[in-house]
């Protein structure tokens, strides 16, 4: 193992971390914003609405993210004249826009299923109680169903965040230079794949470790009624380490 190569690679890879985090954070936020209405469509009584949402989720989850990204970034070039006429070409020729669009559409589909599962797992008694005190549908959702569903969804959504951090690496295939992109550049210049891999891998692992810790802490913070002495102690210990 060549430690000098690792020392050289480290600052370059670290410099790319903000790019990776921006891609993940922006698309997770936008994706979540799409997923909540989609999940509501999924649980709605209208067969048309739930069918549409299911079709979207099914198609996105059945195809690789790489195909979706290429379809948006390279595929849009075929309709350049149309996009130019519509004034949208500025967006579609930009790799950042295409990467975030593809990542957003993908995480929206996976999150829809997570949120749908959580909404359906909200105990019926809670909804009945809300109805009994005369809450309207919207108020029921805002005060009872949604907050409880979010707590139930948190562990699965934590996994989705980690998957998204990993998925941002695909943006390197459409010219965005994030951590994996930089790693590939260094590897093809120095031919020292193992050294670069160890550093880049460690960076991704640290990000994902922090994410999973943060999710656990949030879970405990959101579920004060389920807290036990032991859980608190182990989390504070983990946060200190």
């Amino acid at each position: 193992m060549d430690f000098d190569a690792m020392r050289d690679a480290f600052p370059k890879l670290i410099a790319a971390v903000p790019t990776t985090l921006t891609l993940a954070a922006v698309s997770l936020c936008l994706g979540f914003g799409l997923a909540v209405p989609l999940a509501l469509m999924r649980v709605s009584k209208s067969r048309l609405l739930s069918g549409l949402a299911y079709a979207y989720v099914y198609v996105i989850r059945s195809t690789p993210l790489l195909v979706q990204m290429f379809l948006i970034y390279y595929g849009s070039g075929q309709f350049r004249a149309f996009f130019e006429a519509a004034g949208l070409w500025v967006l579609f020729r930009d790799a950042w826009f295409c990467a975030i669009l593809a990542l957003t559409l993908s995480t929206a589909a996976y999150s829809t299923e997570i949120i749908r599962g959580a909404i359906q797992a909200v105990p019926l008694g809670q909804v009945e109680a809300a109805r009994a005190v005369g809450m309207s549908g919207v108020l029921q959702f805002r005060r009872v169903v949604f907050p409880i569903a979010m707590r139930l969804a948190l562990p699965a959504y934590g996994n989705e965040i980690i998957l998204m951090v990993k998925s941002t690496s695909l943006a390197s295939t459409i010219t965005i230079v994030e951590v994996t992109g930089v790693a590939k550049q260094i590897i093809s210049n120095t031919f020292q794949p193992v050294e670069v891999f160890v550093i880049a891998g460690a960076i991704y692992l640290s990000i994902n470790f922090i994410v999973s810790r943060a999710v656990t802490v949030t879970e405990i913070w959101l579920n004060p009624h389920l807290r036990t002495e032991r859980a608190i102690r182990s989390t504070t210990a983990a946060a200190i380490h």
């Binding site: 690496s169 794949p193 880049a200």
Partner: peptide
């Protein structure tokens, strides 16, 4: 399981492809 599930597949492919090549 921690390493493989925490690191992007694309990075693993680059490692094995370039590493295997050299």
């Amino acid at each position: 399981t921690t390493v493989v599930r925490g690191v992007p597949e694309l990075l693993i492919i680059f490692l094995v492809f370039f590493g295997g090549g050299s």
